[in-house]
């Protein structure tokens, strides 16, 4: 931090720590150094130095689990495929990445899906990825041909025509319709 920057208050510093896993790691390793680097106001330093790293991590984890709950609304099938691996994978991603508002749930889901594309591409549901891309790009119309593994017989695949139509001006949740035609 530049020496001339204005000192930050407790809430701002605590917020940074809750959003940034690497910063929490640094605080656990050397609290005085991190508090100094953050440029925290003198009167707020004792409270930050008093934080117990395990408690801070748990407080941050509560926020990450809330984020996962929001992301689940956008990619339920992908998370179902990840099963017990969903939380560890999301935690790995989210501890290092915090989305900016507005529509942060959509951005978070898209960024997490991007993370999975790079690390575990088979886990992503194509329909959900298409939907995320459609919302994110604020398209009015999109058509995709997607293949889906059949659930009735092993080794079967089904084709689906996925038609995405946005009817409202507002981007994000609630303003789009999703139609599927199964062939």
């Amino acid at each position: 931090m530049p020496a001339s920057a204005a000192p930050i208050d407790f809430t701002t510093a605590f917020g940074r720590l809750l959003r940034d896993g690497a910063l929490r790691d640094a605080l656990a390793a050397n609290p005085r150094r991190v508090v100094e680097q953050l440029g925290v106001r003198e009167q707020d330093r004792p409270a930050l130095l008093h934080l117990v790293p395990a408690d801070l991590e748990y407080q941050a984890e509560i926020l990450l689990r809330k984020r996962l709950g929001v992301v689940r609304e956008f990619i339920p099938e992908t998370l179902r495929r990840l099963a017990g691996d969903a939380w560890p994978r999301f935690h790995h991603y989210a501890r290092r990445h915090w989305p900016d508002a507005p529509h942060s749930g959509l951005r978070d889901a898209h960024a997490f899906a991007g993370f999975l594309q790079a690390t575990q591409p088979g886990a992503i549901c194509d329909r959900e990825w298409n939907r995320l891309e459609f919302f994110r790009k604020q398209q009015r119309l999109a058509v995709h041909w997607v293949r889906r593994r059949g659930e009735d017989r092993a080794g079967w695949w089904r084709g689906e025509l996925q038609l995405l139509v946005r009817t409202g001006r507002q981007a994000g949740r609630g303003a789009e319709w999703l139609l599927h035609f199964q062939l």
Binding site: F10, T12, F14, G15, R16, K66, D100, S104
Partner: peptide, 17 residues
């Protein structure tokens, strides 16, 4: 509680000193 700072939204409730 606070749920946001001047730098962004935290999405849920956090304690104040």
């Amino acid at each position: 509680a606070f749920t946001r700072t001047a730098e962004g939204d935290l999405g849920y409730l956090n304690p104040v000193p």
